[in-house]
Design a protein around this nucleic acid. Sequence first.
DNA 1: ATGCCGTGGAAACCACGA
Length: 258
Amino acid sequence: MRIATYNVNGVNGHLPVLLQWLHETSPDVACLQELKAPQERFPLDAINAAGYHALWHGQKSWNGIAILSKGGPATEIRRILPGDDQDEQSRYLEATINNIVIGCLYLPNGNPAPGPKFDYKLRWMDRFIQHTATLQASGKPVVLTGDYNVIPDEQDVYKPERWVDDALFRPETRAAFQHLLKQGWTDALRKLYPDETIYTYWDYFRNAYQRNAGLRIDHFLLNDKLEKRLLSAGVDKNVRGWEKSSDHAPVWIELKEE
DNA sequence: ATGCCGTGGAAACCACGA
């Protein structure tokens, strides 16, 4: 079973690239972030025509997440991260597919830091950590995937010294990510490739992709039940080089069937 | 290395992203 994550940076603006990628790699599940479309403007017909069911939570202009599935429809669990009734941003969607709990997230960017956006990011991470503790306690197989907007370590950024004050790399952000891992989650790509340079995002300008000046910010966290089934993982780096691509590349894992 | 590009939406620019 292949599960993928892809920050599409506008599901309508980059629809041809999304469809081409689905056609070429055919993941069983695809978690999408940054739809940048209101609920009624999700391109359901095109997604269905590509062979996928879809759950999504849109929002006008910003954010928005979706879970696409090929074998059958996913069963929605929640479309809001618990812990703040005032939070209107579409950043979390959770569903069950083949008995696996799949959390699709678009964690806040948080820049500029310090400031209210960074405060919101840290509060969001606190809420997420609270919620993932309950997922750990559930005893079910769980995968948490998406755009974390977290550079976990120096090896995950082309020039770490330039990012020390950035919301993606600040000590508070990395500490919160470490707190998450201490709950028992495994960073799937880092587990399989402990020493390799792996990037999932390249800026649109300064020829970042051509220079491989990237960041690793899209992650797969697995609980023990799924870590035992992890077969392989990778980044579809070539997709970032396509015409009219998102600034992120898709990331995927392959799980052993039960 | 500072949004220099790109998207979406509202208004011929602005917010936002990382």
